[in-house]
């Protein structure tokens, strides 16, 4: 007897063929990975953070490796939403994978303007980045500001018909409160966590290694923190939680799903092994088959607490 295994999951109105997405900022605009694998295999592609106008980003040095992780301070360098729509999006259309645009604004109106522009495209959803640690204006400043978050989500929700995901930060305030707040405001899902603020110092020069002084820590080093956040938040909200932070393989992905995540995002691992996402999808299927679990949704929140 061959039983078909279901690995589809649902995020808001969006059905994903599998729960594996790419984390913003680690997958460019998707096309850079065409040479490695068929992008159509992904659950969804989340783009590099896009703003209304192109952004140059921070001066170098922008990256430094730390134990089992890395700090980045790119500063949201991007080509701007209009260039993305005219240059990149048409090339992504041939893949039957939902494209989710990560949106970043310096002020509330900018988020709304970008969402308005995206309303007229084939983009399947937006992920609001209100938690980037590497930009002075926007980013983190919103992560703890409930009123600003409410304004952003409310005003986008009014016009924007597709899926709205809000990416949350572990850096400020209480992530559970903020997740509940996002749900109330009309978000379809929350993704957590964004990178954690960190820094490194060169003891020879006594200078910070990163030109921006601070950077966002990612990689396996932050996995336990992300996992705890997903576990706590998924008990408090009804909307799906998307787990992200240091996922390197299917076992990490399973931990996040057992903790309550409906889907996962893979980030830093894409830098090390560009095939990580497809390997995780394949290995998840293998795990389900081995364990005779015929629906991946049965894993979500399957953690046993005695």
């Amino acid at each position: 007897m061959t039983n078909k295994i279901n690995i589809q999951v649902k995020i808001g109105k969006l059905i994903l063929k599998n729960p594996v997405m790419t984390a913003s900022g680690t997958f460019g605009y998707g096309l850079e990975f065409e040479k490695f694998f068929d992008l159509g295999k992904l659950g969804a592609i989340i783009t590099k953070g896009l703003s209304l106008n192109p952004v140059k980003g921070n001066p170098p040095q922008r990256i430094v490796e730390t134990p089992a992780g890395m700090l980045n301070a790119i500063g949201l360098q991007n080509i701007g939403i209009k260039n993305f729509i005219s240059e990149k999006l048409p090339l992504l259309k041939k893949y039957k994978t939902p494209i989710i645009v990560n949106v970043y604004g310096r002020k509330v109106d900018e988020y709304i303007e970008v969402a308005d522009i995206l309303n007229d495209t084939d983009v399947a959803g937006i992920e609001l980045n209100i938690s980037c640690p590497n930009v002075k204006r926007g980013g983190l400043q919103f992560a703890a500001d409930k009123k600003a978050v409410e304004k952003i989500i409310n005003r986008i929700r009014k016009k924007y018909k597709k899926t709205i995901i809000v990416k949350l930060s572990p850096n400020t305030g209480n992530i559970e409160d903020m997740a509940i707040h996002c749900e109330r405001c009309g978000a379809d899902a929350v993704s957590l966590i964004n990178t954690i603020v960190g820094m490194a110092i060169d003891i020879k020069t006594k200078k910070p290694v990163l030109a921006n002084v601070f950077g966002g820590l990612s990689g396996p080093a932050i996995k336990p923190i992300a996992l705890a956040a997903v576990f706590k938040v998924s008990k408090k909200v009804k909307i799906p939680v998307i787990g992200v932070g240091g996922i390197m393989n299917y076992k990490d992905a399973l931990e996040f799903m057992m903790a309550g995540a409906t889907a996962v995002q893979i980030g830093t691992a894409n830098f090390i092994d560009p095939l990580t996402c497809v390997k995780v999808i394949k290995d998840l299927q293998y795990y389900l088959k081995e364990n005779k679990i015929y629906d991946i949704n049965k894993i979500i929140g399957a953690i046993k607490l005695e």
């Binding site: 680690t26 460019g28 850079e32 990975f33 170098p60 922008r62 990256i63 360098q77 894409n270 830098f271």
Partner: peptide, 17 residues
């Protein structure tokens, strides 16, 4: 030469002016 993350053009770490 530069400090690199991905060497695949996506992480934008290795930039020069």
């Amino acid at each position: 030469e530069s400090y690199m993350g991905c060497a695949n053009g996506v992480c934008l770490s290795c930039v020069i002016k």
